[in-house]
Simulated scan of single mutants.
Amino acid sequence: MRLVTHAHPSGDRAAAVVASSDGDRLVDLDGLSLVEILQDETALAAARLRVEHAAGSPETLPRLSDTRLLPPVRPGKILCLGYNYRGHVAEGADPTADDPAFPDVFVKTPNVVNAPGDPVVLPVASTNVDYEGEIAVVIGRRAHRVPLVSALDYVAGYALFNDVSDRDWQGRSSQWELGKCFDGFGPLGPELITADEIPDPQDLLLEVERDGVVTVSQSTATMIFPMAFIVHYLSQVMTLEPGDIISTGTPQKLPQALNDHRPLGPGDAVTIRVAGLGELTTTFTAPTDTERTPA
């Protein structure tokens, strides 16, 4: 299923998305949050039945384009990986030669989560803002010390995530959090695609465009630590709760994009695209006068 959270006069509402001849439509899911649905097999089965029924006459449903999308989930924890895609190697070289022994894990705080259609306001204090297009694993069941062989059973689905980062602030200490945790530095969505729709999460092409130019294009098959291992590994340390997300890293930019790179500025746009997971486009804007004025 394609699941979203959207703004509604009665409060935030969860919905499923179904296609129609004149655009995507919304199937309301009884006022439950996506986290409540994903962690309850009965609620999830009821949602699937509702979607099957609605697919017969979707033209009577509200249009997706008429609503404001919100982050599909509000994670309690946002766990992220640093280097997790192998770079290009010379012909005949061992692509695993430089693999680290363990994942490089850091956190982003919940204040970074940004709605998929909202711009990221470039903070006054920021100086060198960059983007990282990633696939986020969304946890659906409480996971503690889960075996590797069953780790994906704890995954509710997948979403797109932009790990926006200020490289200067990131480099000011041995911990990266100040550069990673500016308000709004984590656009998430636009949809959560349930795990059953993605037969093999290690066979997805992740592409990123900046202002219409492809800057990243690499398969999840080149991940050093596959998604199942990441869930297993992190659950040895902490209990992963429904709605938590694990952002699984970004590939290195293509050579020309590295040569042409400049910090993000007002008016720039970044699109993350993965077949089966959709597209997430984020625009970047200058701070308002209010944001520029010290309190």
Rank of each mutant, 00 (worst) to 15 (best):
H8K: 10
A14R: 07
A16Y: 02
V18G: 04
S20R: 01
S20A: 15
G23M: 10
D24C: 06
L29Y: 00
L32K: 12
L34K: 05
V35L: 07
T42V: 15
A43T: 00
A43E: 11
L44W: 11
V51M: 05
E52Q: 14
H53S: 14
A54L: 02
S57Q: 13
E59Q: 13
L61E: 07
R63G: 14
R63E: 12
L64R: 14
S65F: 01
R68Q: 13
P71D: 08
R74Q: 15
A90V: 10
G92K: 09
D94N: 15
D98T: 15
D98Q: 14
P100F: 07
F102P: 00
K108T: 12
P110I: 04
P119Q: 02
P123C: 13
A125S: 14
N128P: 00
V129C: 05
I139C: 04
A143E: 03
R145L: 05
V146T: 06
V155K: 09
V155E: 05
S165N: 04
S165L: 06
D166P: 11
D166A: 03
R167N: 12
R167V: 03
G171M: 00
G171Y: 02
Q175S: 11
L178A: 15
G179E: 02
K180I: 10
C181F: 01
G184L: 03
L188T: 03
E191R: 02
L192A: 11
D200V: 03
P201I: 02
L206T: 10
V208C: 14
D211N: 15
F225R: 10
P226I: 01
A228K: 05
F229Q: 09
Y233D: 07
S235L: 06
V237Y: 15
M238G: 01
P242F: 08
G243K: 04
D244S: 12
G249C: 05
G249F: 07
L254V: 00
L254Q: 15
A257P: 06
P263I: 03
P263V: 07
L264Q: 08
A269Q: 12
T281Y: 00
T285G: 07
A286H: 06
P287N: 09
T288G: 14
T288I: 06
T288S: 15
E291N: 01
R292E: 08
